[in-house]
Design a binder for these strands. Structure first.
Lengths: 270, 270
DNA sequence: GTGCTTTATTGGTATTACCTAATGTGCTGC
DNA sequence: GCAGCACATTAGGTAATACCAATAAAGCAC
């Protein structure tokens, strides 16, 4: 059985068996899984060995575990890429430039497609997202959610689920990253979304594409601007507080971490 | 601390703390983590609680665990999306059409960029991939690896790591899916790769883009053809073997699964 | 100094026990 | 007969412990 991967710890094997069962149609979206205790017996492993495998599936958004109830295979893959994408950004140190470049490469094209295939349902969703955006004064969380909704509506209108998943995830991770910035400006965002929506409603692909490109470029410009300001502020702080030159992020996203943990020979140190 | 997600089981919290540590620069790519026993003490949880969290990170390609040695934070995110993407395909039932559509939307553009930015290193990689492709007679695994190498070379030449990661993963998952088909034809693949490589070397973006699009369309056509054949064959088998109408995949990818497991009231049944 | 052996360390697995939350059942009271 | 509450069952979540297997580092012999 040739395969590109090859590990051998039980966790991985169990996950492979799960995958196999899914592709064989034994497990279908929405089905309730047997209890951990039963599964452990079936797979001939201890429950404490099975649990990590199930936890991996849950954290990747493949299943959902409910205490006192059981585990269910998710209906769709809407959240499968969320966490991995965040780690991708962290590990690769993905820059806003890269993100923007990718989005510019594809979202205008998607907007154009949306303008070609759009249905009345899609239009309703688009309008709703704009309405929500307008009504979410100062509420950053709601504002960002509305922004996401707008772009997701376009993805759906474009008619390719896979592409939608991908870019929804990217968009979301991006917004999560800049959650702490003051960036997202209500009027500003609306002023871009409205014409795009209109172009799609009028089934004008060329215009939709062009406007979307402008929107993304503008967002990138704003992001870059904010970043410069933060950098500057950090620099000032660096000199005023006279602290040692420990690397610091611009915003106060630090939490949950007690500062001086870990002090070992060749392991991590701070 | 506003955040789009919100769970509260320890596993998730631990992963969040890990993420935080990474974004704070406490954990940097390549560092060796403290042992599970130490980490468990630091996080004030039992080792058996910490393990699933670490396992999630390993399965997502964030860390690498070595028995008798320790855990290391990976250098890059090259494998972070691999497993999630496979589950995405499984859960969403992603079709070859969707995949092809997405690739057609972006890979020609990437080939064009590659033609603009290509360096001598990139060209060397491209040529090597073609050489490997030619030398991998009948060895399907090597053949597929060469194919992957070719496209990855283009991604790298295009200069956007994020895009490269994304499409490498998609490409890989796609190949993994069709691993069992006889599809991949040596001469055929080479006949497409060579001119694309040439166009990139000559710094001809328009040509590179056009050829890449042709390559993808051709691959999609072949895939579709194969699929029809398999469907037909399955249909024949269905009638000759007189078995009950259990869902079956065309190829013999089934393994690891004993057929009649699980028979419970409202849980999965087969 | 080189090469082997030993040993401490690390992740992997199994066993057990107990907690909390959800479900379902049956009893009670109206 | 039906509504509503109490309880027992069952699910996943966590902890504690013991032991296995693989690795790497330390020590020893040559």
């Amino acid at each position: 059985m040739p395969c590109l991967d090859a590990k051998e710890d039980l966790t991985h094997l169990l996950i492979l068996r799960f995958q196999q069962m899914m592709s064989d149609g034994v497990l279908r979206p929405g089905t309730k899984l047997p209890s951990e205790r039963e599964l452990a017996v079936h797979f001939k492993v201890d429950r404490s060995t099975l649990r990590p495998a199930l936890k991996v599936l849950e954290m990747m958004g493949v299943i959902q575990q409910k205490i006192g109830d059981g585990s269910y295979l998710n209906q769709d893959a809407s959240s499968v890429l969320a966490m991995p994408m965040e780690f991708l950004f962290l590990l690769d140190g993905t820059s806003i430039e890269e993100l923007t470049e990718l989005r510019l490469l594809i979202e205008p094209a998607l907007a154009a497609r949306a303008a070609e295939r759009v249905t009345s349902d899609d239009i309703a969703l688009l309008r709703q997202s704009i309405k929500e955006l307008e009504s979410s004064k100062q509420d950053r969380v709601k504002l960002i959610a509305s922004d996401l909704l707008f772009h997701r509506a376009i993805f759906e209108a474009s008619g390719n689920r896979l592409t939608g998943r991908l870019f929804h995830t990217i968009h979301r991770a991006m917004l999560n990253m800049m959650m702490t910035s003051q960036l997202v400006d209500l009027e500003h965002t609306v002023s871009f979304h409205k014409p795009i929506c209109a172009a799609i409603e009028q089934c004008n692909p060329a215009l939709a594409s062009k406007l979307m490109a402008a929107h993304l470029k503008d967002a990138a410009r704003l992001l870059d601007q904010i970043r410069r300001q933060e950098k500057e502020r950090d620099l000032r702080q660096h000199f005023t507080t006279a602290k040692s030159g420990l690397v610091k992020k611009g915003n106060s996203a630090r939490r949950l971490m007690s500062p001086v943990l870990f002090a070992k020979k060749n392991s991590i140190r701070l």
